[in-house]
Amino acid sequence: MSRGDLEDVGRLFNQAFRQVAKAPSRDLVAYLDHLFLSSPNYTEEAGSLVHRNAAGRIDSALLALPMTFEIENRRITARLLCAFMADGRAGLAGAARIARAIRVSDPEFCFSDNASPVSADHWMAGGGSLLPVQSLEWRRTFRPTGAMMERIRTKLPWLNEPFLSILAYPVDQMARRMMPSLAARQELRGRWVTADADSLLHCFQTMTRHFPLRPSWSKDEFVWLLENAASNRMQGTLTSKVLLDREDKEIGACIYFHSPRRTAHVLNVLSEPGHEVEVVEAMFAELEASEHVAARGMAQPFLMNALLRTGRTSFANRGYFCMTTDRKDVRSAVVHDDLYVGGLASESWSRLLTDFR
């Protein structure tokens, strides 16, 4: 994909994901350019793909974002595959050629965290793997009436939001008195402090080092990801915090979209090994104190014990997390859940999921 293709790709995006046949806005074209042609790791070989039919028109496309990963102390270029789109039945042949081109390119690590059931079937048929835990979203509700009102507002956006919040508050106060388990545990052994990019990157590097397969971001790449996530104002204000224990040692970190009276979207939860339970409990207490009605995020194998122990946590399919690789060491890490992915290493922060309606 080149810059000359962006208008056609934007039009195809509108048709495939917004069900409207119209030219893309200037904002959408600029975002596609910035995200997929201007990232710190962009190369043509690791970039997005388009297919032109016999008439020279783009009938299918696959948007890809290169990311740096590390496997057993060796750096590799991973490709986060985002939007896979085709122009109806006319674009299916082109989409199949794109999928085959990915498979035969000897990929070091290609993954998608939001695949549809049909796309997941194609991944599996092509020799890829499905990660069942990362395909789940966890959800913790603090204020059930407020959470229900949020779902109503999503379907009926014309309703008066302040009025609904005022209406929900006394009902939730009563519900929390009747069901004390709705409240997060408050016996915290540490304190949360706001983190800048440097301290947050340090936490990523130290708290994921025991995973054989993990992101290996440079500072430039990490800051670029944070800045792009922060631009997604539809989800709230991007907030980064580090959990310090009583000796002021860093034992956990959290990146989330702060949105009072709404659900907090948690991108990443990090923990020093052995501190998962207290980090998750401290995160829930912090989000509840920040007036969120609920919290949600991608499930991770190393967090499951902590999430299940906190109570009032439910799980649902969030879209299939699929991957493919030609490397035995990467495949082994995936099979044994020895990998860290998700959050910033996913498309869950992208404006393509929330904007450009």
Rank of each mutant, 00 (worst) to 15 (best):
residue 198 D to H: 14
residue 233 R to D: 08
residue 170 P to R: 07
residue 164 L to T: 06
residue 348 S to E: 13
residue 141 T to Y: 00
residue 304 M to Y: 01
residue 116 S to T: 09
residue 67 M to Y: 11
residue 205 Q to V: 12
residue 267 L to P: 07
residue 317 N to F: 05
residue 342 G to K: 07
residue 57 R to W: 14
residue 217 W to D: 01
residue 123 W to C: 01
residue 55 A to W: 13
residue 289 A to Q: 11
residue 83 A to C: 13
residue 55 A to N: 14
residue 138 W to T: 07
residue 253 A to D: 03
residue 252 G to L: 01
residue 345 A to H: 03
residue 57 R to C: 14
residue 94 G to V: 07
residue 271 S to T: 10
residue 339 L to M: 11
residue 176 R to T: 11
residue 17 F to L: 06
residue 18 R to Q: 02
residue 350 S to K: 05
residue 74 R to G: 05
residue 22 K to H: 09
residue 218 S to Q: 02
residue 172 D to N: 03
residue 191 R to G: 03
residue 282 A to C: 04
residue 69 F to N: 05
residue 312 R to M: 13
residue 5 D to C: 04
residue 196 D to H: 08
residue 249 K to W: 13
residue 295 A to V: 06
residue 13 F to C: 03
residue 114 N to P: 12
residue 107 P to G: 02
residue 346 S to N: 09
residue 13 F to W: 02
residue 19 Q to V: 12
residue 159 L to Y: 05
residue 240 S to V: 09
residue 20 V to M: 08
residue 241 K to W: 14
residue 88 G to R: 05
residue 117 P to K: 06
residue 276 E to P: 00
residue 43 T to M: 06
residue 335 V to S: 12
residue 220 D to R: 13
residue 222 F to P: 10
residue 201 L to G: 07
residue 130 L to G: 10
residue 116 S to Q: 05
residue 154 T to N: 15
residue 322 C to Y: 07
residue 76 I to Q: 00
residue 89 R to G: 12
residue 65 L to C: 02
residue 205 Q to K: 11
residue 241 K to T: 15
residue 95 A to V: 14
residue 213 L to Q: 01
residue 316 A to R: 14
residue 132 P to H: 05
residue 331 R to E: 12
residue 7 E to C: 04
